[in-house]
Computed example of a mutant assay.
Amino acid sequence: MTALAGSARLADVPLRWVVVAPDEVGVLHRLTRVVRGTPGGVLVHLDALPPAAAGAQVGVSPCAACGGAPSDLVWLGRLTAADVGVVVAWIASGASHLPAELASRVVATTGPRGHEAVERAR
């Protein structure tokens, strides 16, 4: 038997963050399975939205990045059931560009990758 030694820090693991607003239990439920199946997928149900993301239902990091907290997010709001389906497909695809169908649903962005994802969708 071989013993392995070492450690890993969360900052060393590429993560794709999905954060869901407090009142969005239905959206949380729809995203759970796809995020679990995404390499490095992290799903967070927030207690409160940050003020800059007022009106958002979900925030998605455009691509996996190393770090212990999401710095790049695209915040989406006014989502219909069909829009949530597009969000699910976007996460499942692993694509870094925001689908054009969601460009009108962006309520805020954080970080350079969040801004780039929205610019590519427009």
Rank of each mutant, 00 (worst) to 15 (best):
P39A: 12
V86E: 10
T32Y: 07
T38K: 06
V84D: 01
P99D: 00
A95L: 12
H115L: 13
A8V: 15
R113S: 04
L15N: 04
D23G: 14
E24S: 11
S104P: 07
M1K: 07
A56W: 03
V34F: 09
A11L: 04
V44K: 12
G26C: 01
V107Y: 09
H115F: 02
G55H: 07
D12L: 10
D47A: 15
V13W: 09
A21N: 01
A11K: 08
G77I: 07
A53W: 11
D83Y: 06
H115G: 11
S71C: 10
P99S: 00
A8Q: 10
C66T: 11
A54D: 15
A92E: 14
A54Y: 07
G67S: 08
A117S: 15
T80L: 05
G111L: 08
E101D: 15
V107R: 13
A56Q: 04
R78D: 15
A103M: 00
A54M: 11
G41C: 13
R120E: 11
P51S: 14
L46V: 07
H29F: 05
R33M: 03
G94H: 08
D72N: 14
V18K: 00
V118M: 03
V34D: 10
G67F: 12
L43K: 02
S7K: 10
L4W: 13
A48C: 02
C66N: 07
V13D: 02
A52T: 13
P22I: 05
R120F: 01
A3E: 14
R120Y: 01
G59N: 03
G77E: 14
E119A: 07
G68W: 09
R30H: 02
S104T: 15
A81P: 05
D47S: 14
V13Q: 06
A64Y: 12
R33W: 04
G114A: 07
P39M: 12
V35L: 14
R30V: 06
L10H: 07
A8N: 10
V60T: 03
